[in-house]
Amino acid sequence: MGAARYWLIIVGMGAITYAMRLSFILLPGRLRLPAILRRSLRFVPPAVFSALILPAVLRPAGPLEISPSNVRLLAAAVAAIVAWRTKNTVLTIAVGMAALWILQWVL
């Protein structure tokens, strides 16, 4: 992909984000966010992040690999335990990467 295409997409993503940040700040005061959207918004993070995590660890090379020989699945499971217990982003990433390197060396 050429550099110009990266910039084009980045400017597009920025414009969409800026428009949402500006929205209600610029709009007249009477307008409100629809109730259904307000209730749904909190499900965006679990849905989007999970949709990115599961294919990456269950199909690391394309085909479905739910087996102990899938080191990315095992390392992700270790990271998930750390995330669950500590809620610490940096620690989760560090332990997950260390688990990947150790498992590849051992298995």
Binding site: R42, F43, P45, P46, A47, V48, F49, S50, A51, L52, I53, A56, V57, R72, A75, A76, A79, A80, A83, W84, K87, N88, T89, T92, I93, G96, M97, L100
Partner: peptide, 27 residues
């Protein structure tokens, strides 16, 4: 691999109740 790990850390705070977990599993 640090990218899926980042998303694992980011998804954690949203998994606090059944609807949140259901959203994650289905997605």
């Amino acid at each position: 691999f640090a990218l899926p790990l980042t998303f694992i850390a980011l998804v954690r705070p949203s998994l606090v109740d059944r609807p949140g977990v259901a959203a994650a599993i289905v997605a």
